[in-house]
Design a protein around this nucleic acid. Structure first.
Lengths: 159, 159
DNA sequence: GTCCGAATGTTCGATCGACTAACGTTTATT
DNA sequence: AATAAACGTTAGTCGATCGAACATTCGGAC
C-alpha cells in the first residue's frame, strides 16, 4: 500500500478492521525500521527480552515464553549467536537441549532496542494527547483480551 | 502466535505497537475467514468495491484507486475473471490497456462480501460500547491521518 | 516521420511474521 | 525393552506487500 491518489475516498476506509490494519502497518514499519537501524528485527527483541526475564533456558521453553514458534527460534538464535548476543550451550543434564543465555553484549543490545522501541511508541502516538493514549491502550487491551479468550492463547485451560 | 502459556506476562505486551499489531491480527483473521467463507479474499473485495465505485477502468487505474500493487492486480483479476465476477477486455483505443468491468455476478458477490464484512466489524468490536467504538475509530483515524501525511499516500501534493 | 521517454501489463522474486510437516535424537514412562 | 513424548532442525506454506525487470505500446519533441 503505497498508492491511492486519484480522487477516490474508498468505501472501506472507515471500517475499524481497516483502520486497525493500517495503523498497525505504520506501527510495525516504525518499529521494524527502529530495530533494523541497530541490525535487529522483532524476533530478536522478543527473544532477548524473554531471555533477560526468565534467564537461560532451552529453546523450547523460550519459544513457549516468547510466543516465537519453535522453528523460528532456530533461525533467531542463529542470528543472535552469530552476533555474539546470545550463547548456545548443550545442556549437560539433557542432551536434547541447548541452553541459551544472554551475553553482556546481548544485554547492551537489548538496552538499545528498548530505547528505540520507546522512541517508536512516541512517534507512533505523536498526535494523541496523554488521555487519548491511555484510552487507546485500554480499549485495545480490552479487545485483545476478548479475542484471546475465545480464540488464541490457550494459557493452559485446566491447570 | 499460538503459544504463550508458562507464567510469563512479557514486558512488551502493553506497548501500543504490540496491542495494535495483535488486535489487527485478530481483525484480519476475522475478516479473512469471513471472506474465505465465500471463496474470496481481501483483494477481491477491494477490487470489486473499487470497480463499482469508479466503473470500468484499466488495471493501472484500478491499482491506483484501490491501493493494490500493480503486480498483484494481475493475479487478483485473474482469480475474479476465472469466477466470472469481472471481465477483462482489451481497450480498442489503447492496445496496452485492458478494461476491467464488473459483471452482475460480481455485483452480487460484492453484496455478499459487504454483508460478511459488516458482520465481522461487529464481531470484532463486540466487547465495546457504542461510545468506545466511536472513540476507537476516531483515534485510529487521527493516527492514520497523521502517519499517512508524513509517510505514505502522496495524494498528489501539488494538484 | 522518427526517436525517446513514459505508461501498461506481466512475471518473478523478496520480505516478515506466523505456522505445518517431517525427521533424528534423546529422555521419560510403563 | 518398548513406547511415548519432548527437543532441535530443516524445509517448506501462506498472506499481504513491495521492488525489479521486461516487452509492448503510446505520446510528445524534434
Amino acid at each position: 500500500m503505497e498508492n491511492s491518489s486519484e480522487e477516490t475516498p474508498a468505501r472501506w476506509e472507515g471500517l475499524p478492521s481497516w483502520l486497525l490494519g493500517q495503523t498497525a502497518n505504520h506501527a510495525q514499519r516504525l518499529v521494524g525500521d527502529g530495530f533494523s537501524s541497530v541490525g535487529a528485527r522483532g524476533y530478536h527483541y522478543r527473544l532477548l527480552a524473554t531471555l533477560e526475564e526468565s534467564g537461560p533456558a532451552s529453546q523450547a521453553a523460550l519459544g513457549r515464553r516468547s510466543g516465537i514458534h519453535l522453528s523460528d527460534m532456530v533461525a533467531t538464535i542463529n542470528e543472535l549467536a552469530d552476533r555474539g548476543l546470545v550463547e548456545r550451550a548443550p545442556d549437560p543434564s539433557d542432551r536434547r537441549r541447548n541452553i541459551i543465555s544472554l551475553t553482556s553484549a546481548g544485554k547492551r543490545q537489548l538496552r538499545r532496542l528498548e530505547k528505540r522501541l520507546a522512541e517508536c511508541q512516541d512517534e507512533l502516538l505523536a498526535p494523541l494527547s496523554p488521555e487519548e493514549r491511555q484510552r487507546l491502550t485500554e480499549v485495545l487491551s480490552k479487545l485483545l483480551d476478548h479475542h484471546n479468550r475465545r480464540t488464541g492463547t490457550p494459557e493452559e485451560p485446566g491447570r
